[in-house]
Design a protein around this nucleic acid. Structure first.
Lengths: 112, 112
DNA sequence: GGAAACTGAAACGGAACCGAAACAATTTGC
DNA sequence: GCAAATTGTTTCGGTTCCGTTTCAGTTTCC
């Protein structure tokens, strides 16, 4: 794949995200969501903040938003009750899966 | 490319965007920027709004923001002075080009 | 026990964004 | 010439996000 094709693919996926009437996730929210679903658990607020190089409140608020959308869920760590473990949800897994399928679909539509 | 690889690639590119300390573009701003640089000109506020299925003020505000970042520039259409023509800039072209190169670089780092 | 360290969340003020509506400037149609 | 239509911008009230700071709960280390 060449850069120009990659850019065209990126544009198409971005456009499909913007066009649909669901509220757009921010770049940070998307990065957090994908990290939760692609990197091996367990995921904590602190760990995500370090991975993304952002402050902890950024993670907390993004989890608030995505939790309301049922894309992730939070649970206290029973072994160390200071920790919050972020878990995947069925809805979130579906969202991410559809996103992946969307990328592939757009890739197939690309001009040569 | 399979969906899982596409998702991993998307995550890596998102992470690199979030990690660097430059201010993140929103999903909409990115879609607008890429459309300006990938679709053939001329580009107008109205045309971009229709292409992205958003209202005109969304375009105006995104152009304000990206104009301040020198990623795009605006000029009155001399033939029909109601129109504003959006033009590419050197900085914007570099930004988009680097973005494309970044995708390719991340793609090469992907696990098999 | 009790101080210190750590974790995630809440509070705060400021900035950016949103949709809808109102607006000024320009062109079109009669 | 002048009303109607078109274009991009601004304004309005409301929402969301931001970084910093502060806080409550928990664990660790003497």
């Amino acid at each position: 794949m060449r850069p120009s094709q990659a850019l065209r693919l990126w544009q198409q996926v971005m456009l499909s995200q913007v066009r649909d009437d669901e509220p757009d996730l921010t770049m940070r929210q998307t990065a957090i969501l994908f990290t939760i679903y692609l990197d091996p658990p367990p995921h904590t607020v602190r760990g995500l903040a370090a991975r993304l190089n952002v402050t902890k409140p950024v993670i907390t608020r993004a989890l608030d938003t995505m939790g309301a959308l049922k894309l992730v869920s939070r649970h206290r760590d029973e072994l160390d009750k200071r920790n919050v473990l972020i878990r995947r949800t069925v809805e979130g897994a579906l969202f991410v899966e559809r996103f992946g399928d969307g990328i592939i679909a757009k890739a197939h539509e690309l001009p040569i």
